[in-house]
Amino acid sequence: MLVIVQILSILLTVAWWIIIIQAVMSWLIAFNVINTYNDFVANIWTALDKMTQPIYRPIRKIMPDFGALDLSPMVVLILILILQSVILPAMLRAAG
């Protein structure tokens, strides 16, 4: 059980950083610091988008539309934080 919890913790940490990187990159694109005409930037943006859209889609269906403000990454980050600080430790206590 310890190995499963450790793997889940690593995967949640990776997901956390992917979401943070995508948020920072979206700000840089919005303020025209970097643009998607660059092939490297476009490839990274596409890869990050394909990784996060399956996670965001169910949350976007539930949340109200705020126009240009997308709060689904923040909701996912809060869920990841809850999983890492509450659920995973409870799984370890239950197994041990």
Score class of each variant (00 low, 15 high):
14 V>G: 00
48 L>V: 03
27 W>L: 12
78 I>D: 12
22 Q>K: 15
20 I>Q: 05
25 M>I: 10
76 V>Y: 05
54 P>T: 04
95 A>S: 07
76 V>I: 11
22 Q>M: 12
69 L>V: 15
34 I>N: 01
12 L>H: 02
41 V>Y: 03
85 S>L: 11
22 Q>F: 12
9 S>R: 06
33 V>F: 11
20 I>K: 10
68 A>K: 11
72 S>D: 10
62 I>H: 08
96 G>D: 12
83 L>N: 06
68 A>S: 15
84 Q>K: 12
36 T>P: 00
35 N>K: 12
73 P>M: 01
4 I>E: 03
15 A>V: 02
81 L>G: 05
20 I>R: 02
91 M>N: 14
31 F>N: 05
5 V>A: 01
78 I>Q: 09
95 A>C: 07
35 N>Y: 15
53 Q>A: 11
2 L>Q: 14
34 I>W: 00
32 N>V: 15
75 V>S: 07
89 P>H: 15
56 Y>C: 00
47 A>D: 05
35 N>G: 11
34 I>G: 04
16 W>G: 01
44 I>P: 01
25 M>V: 07
80 I>A: 01
23 A>V: 09
52 T>F: 10
74 M>G: 12
10 I>E: 01
67 G>Y: 06
12 L>W: 01
57 R>D: 04
30 A>C: 04
2 L>D: 15
65 D>C: 07
65 D>F: 11
15 A>H: 03
31 F>P: 04
29 I>Q: 05
14 V>L: 06
46 T>I: 14
53 Q>D: 05
41 V>W: 06
22 Q>V: 09
17 W>E: 07
80 I>F: 11
86 V>Y: 09
89 P>E: 15
64 P>C: 02
81 L>N: 07
10 I>S: 04
68 A>N: 14
9 S>N: 14
82 I>P: 00
7 I>C: 13
76 V>K: 03
26 S>E: 01
18 I>D: 04
11 L>S: 03
6 Q>N: 14
1 M>D: 13
11 L>V: 14
33 V>L: 10
5 V>S: 03
76 V>R: 03
41 V>A: 13
3 V>E: 15
73 P>H: 02
68 A>H: 11
67 G>R: 03
85 S>N: 12
17 W>M: 13
58 P>V: 05
58 P>K: 09
63 M>D: 09
66 F>C: 03
89 P>D: 13
47 A>R: 10
69 L>W: 14
39 D>N: 13
57 R>K: 06
8 L>G: 10
9 S>L: 15
50 K>V: 08
20 I>W: 06
36 T>N: 06
16 W>A: 07
29 I>K: 01
76 V>T: 04
5 V>C: 06
